[in-house]
Amino acid sequence: MTQSIREITPAEALQLQKKGAPLIDVREADEHALGLPEAAAPVPRARLEADPAQYHPDQTQALLLICAGGRRSLLAAESLASQGYRQLYSVIGGFQRWQAEGLPIASSESPDFLQRYARHLRLPQVGVSGQKKLAAARVLIVGAGGLGSPAAYYLAAAGVGFLRVVDDDRVELSNLQRQILHTDDRVGQLKVDSAKQTLSALNPKIEIEAIATRLAADNVEALIGDVDVVVDGADNFTARYLLSDACVQLAKPLVYGAVHRFEGQVSVFDAGRQRGSAPCYRCLFPDPPSAAEAPNCSEAGVLGVLPGLIGLLQATETLKLLLQIGEPLIGRLLHVETLGMQFRETRLKPDPACRRCAPGRVALPYDEVVAFCADGH
């Protein structure tokens, strides 16, 4: 380090700043969006080093530099010292220490937003703009049980601005082994009310709409129509086929999950927006299985953590869809087997003869879907 550079604490920098020394934040633009030391000038390091006179023409005047943790500001100071600057100060610990010490910060976002989603904001694939996308997003979660519980919990934590939770059941003691939205003292309470209580306590900044009803032919489109993504946490095949058909009709992505004993499945069906190139649920399961072929959890049992794993994967896929990042499980079925802890993937193709999503097919009346499932299961 040259004699013209001195490392100082954030508190010392603030005092010098109050005496008139300018403070330049040399982090990148996406980092500046997370907030700045009050009155600091946001100038990325490369830009400052390329033309320092544009931002601080007097080489004899004191100049304060800060970055995220102190390393980049020191390197920038060394570059400016080599160009003739004589009074350079690098802030030890950078903006992270500045924040930790409670020094004044300027930001267009609320302190709650910056602190609550700090780990998201540091991801280039999310950042402030992505977090705002999540805040504006609307998701329907059908079922507040084994799958809906973890999915809703993580989507609420992630800051999805509106969650509509639909379920007509009440909390039972046997639910608590896996349905983490509910507690012992809420046995007998409507699941959607219990879910809203838990999710609102976790993140009071989002809106939770609790609808105590059963998904049916006469309400499926109304429940789906104004959301961006649908999460399937249903426990019956009538609801699954209704959801699938309505999502094709209304061009909504459907995040599917299912569990059985020690095994689970996850996929994303997006045939409504990608007709002919992406499959729907009916392409995978043209007909509902019989009760003997697919017993429910109360009959077959389920490892309590399994719905947590599958619901978490559903939440992950939902966030990817909302943020438009990564490669969603469209055209892929992820199978999870927990006893051997094995994950395997099956490629899915749209069925050219699918009754619902094949090009040129017209919408099936939802009443027919209900009758179709009643006949098959």
Rank of each mutant, 00 (worst) to 15 (best):
residue 13 A to T: 00
residue 369 V to I: 15
residue 148 G to H: 01
residue 231 V to W: 02
residue 146 G to M: 04
residue 10 P to R: 02
residue 235 D to L: 10
residue 86 R to W: 09
residue 365 P to T: 13
residue 184 D to I: 08
residue 178 R to G: 07
residue 100 A to L: 01
residue 305 V to T: 15
residue 54 Q to S: 10
residue 228 D to T: 08
residue 68 A to F: 02
residue 151 A to I: 06
residue 22 P to H: 10
residue 9 T to F: 00
residue 86 R to M: 15
residue 184 D to Y: 07
residue 149 S to D: 05
residue 67 C to D: 11
residue 134 L to F: 00
residue 259 V to C: 07
residue 108 S to A: 08
residue 266 V to C: 12
residue 182 H to Q: 08
residue 141 I to Q: 06
residue 147 L to V: 03
residue 97 R to G: 02
residue 260 H to W: 14
residue 308 G to P: 10
residue 94 G to I: 02
residue 187 V to E: 02
residue 74 L to A: 15
residue 87 Q to G: 14
residue 31 E to K: 02
residue 57 P to Y: 12
residue 34 L to W: 03
residue 135 A to C: 04
residue 322 L to Y: 04
residue 299 E to G: 00
residue 39 A to F: 15
residue 294 A to D: 07
residue 353 A to P: 00
residue 251 A to T: 12
residue 152 A to P: 03
residue 153 Y to A: 14
residue 221 E to V: 01
residue 280 C to L: 00
residue 77 A to S: 15
residue 273 R to G: 07
residue 113 F to W: 05
residue 352 P to G: 04
residue 368 E to F: 08
residue 302 V to H: 13
residue 67 C to G: 09
residue 347 R to I: 07
residue 194 S to H: 02
residue 163 L to P: 03
residue 10 P to G: 00
residue 176 L to Q: 11
residue 193 D to Q: 09
residue 305 V to H: 13
residue 190 L to V: 02
residue 285 F to C: 10
residue 358 A to C: 06
residue 9 T to M: 03
residue 192 V to R: 04
residue 207 E to S: 09
residue 30 D to E: 11
residue 31 E to T: 02
residue 276 G to I: 05
residue 251 A to G: 11
residue 287 D to W: 01
residue 211 I to C: 14
residue 307 P to C: 02
residue 59 Q to V: 05
residue 81 A to S: 15
residue 314 Q to T: 09
residue 177 Q to D: 06
residue 332 R to Y: 15
residue 117 Y to M: 03
residue 349 K to P: 01
